[in-house]
Design a binder for these strands. Structure first.
Lengths: 205, 205
DNA sequence: GGTTTTGTGTATCGCTCAGTACACAATATA
DNA sequence: TATATTGTGTACTGAGCGATACACAAAACC
């Protein structure tokens, strides 16, 4: 059935993703993408149709290979206090491990929220999907941690989920502006969780 | 000493500011700026030197006419619980009052943080200055509210300031993605303040 | 009023952009 | 091996970009 692709799609998409992650959609040119992927634009257009098509593929890969693996910490059986702490600990490692000039700093979707999503409905939906999934997942974990502690106080899960989601998003927002403060925000999330669910009331896995 | 400027600098800068606010630096073209300001590019270049010069003037105006007036609520004599509540109430009004497609949604500096500031040192410094001033101011107000309540517990002001700053920044980030949720984050900040400083312990101005 | 100094309009610069036309390369099928 | 089908490289397009050259307009100063 004709000539075969000489590149692996995943590799190309991830190279493009890191570029978009670093510079944003508009500031990334096709010349940049050619350099990063090693492919000529004829191949890129043949495989993805347009710059935007490649960007959408990059966003999809970002969700699949960055977002979802991280959120998995917060789902599944046995979630609760320890999962919440693990989630922010992982995020903290990710921020503090990367060198100052790494393209992988911050969050592609948070950057979208401040850029493309302002005038692009598709981007807005993706960002909103991310926000709501993050908040809902945090809320579930908070509820699980709360019932494990045996409390029957008024349900503070919604506001706490919003608070944690805010700390996480702000940390991503600041990751390339002030990495130290970004880490401090994630530590603040950890302190909050500890204060809501003191050690004597739950296992600290 | 020659011909006089036929336009008011402030008016022009503010028109440009709203455009940058809405679309960001890169996505705003000189043609857009000509339309918005009513000036030809010869006049713009004569007065501001470059597109970036106009942008910097716009950022300065943004700080002077948007940021600082808002922060003033949190400074001066008699700050404390009521000032904190007032600050987030004002922010809430600003977000919920603006129509869905207003260019003035969100925060120019938050947008910068996710865009320009990633690779532009000047922009990074401006954003970082904003972040630290906001956090410090919130912290001062929190300390004032804390001592007014008479508590001598461990100083929770730093982490609380980070939490409130995060809620504020995230609300700005989401203002153009999901206005309802943006308001919910600001309401969460209000709830947090109320829970830290219950009514029976302070005046609720 | 003449001169100097400064602001504005017109027209255009060189460049980069995303996107494309088309020939050629490579391989699966027959 | 002949053919059909698909991938890749070269070279280019028209449009839009930020920036500028330069003539002209207008007002302050002597």
């Amino acid at each position: 059935m004709g000539r075969l692709q000489s590149f692996e799609r995943t590799t190309v998409v991830q190279a493009a993703r890191d570029l978009f992650w670093d510079k944003g959609f508009e500031a990334t040119s096709l010349a940049d993408l050619e350099d990063a992927t090693g492919l000529r634009r004829s191949s890129l257009y043949h495989a993805f149709g347009s710059k935007r098509g490649l960007f959408d593929a990059a966003v999809e890969d970002y969700q699949a290979s960055v977002i979802r693996p991280r959120l998995r910490t917060l789902t599944g059986p046995g979630i609760g206090r320890a999962s919440l702490l693990a989630y922010f600990s992982e995020l903290r490692s990710a921020v503090s491990a990367l060198p100052e000039d790494s393209p992988r700093r911050g969050c592609l979707l948070v950057n979208c929220a401040a850029g493309l999503a302002g005038h692009d409905d598709l981007a807005r939906q993706v960002v909103e999907g991310y926000r709501s999934e993050l908040t809902d997942t945090l809320q579930d974990a908070l509820r699980a941690a709360g019932t494990a502690a045996g409390g029957s106080a008024p349900d503070r899960a919604p506001e706490r989920a919003r608070t944690l989601a805010s700390l996480g998003m702000s940390a991503m927002l600041l990751a390339r502006v002030n990495a130290t403060e970004s880490v401090a925000l994630l530590d603040t999330a950890t302190e909050q969780i500890r204060s809501w669910f003191p050690v004597h009331a739950a296992t600290d896995a």
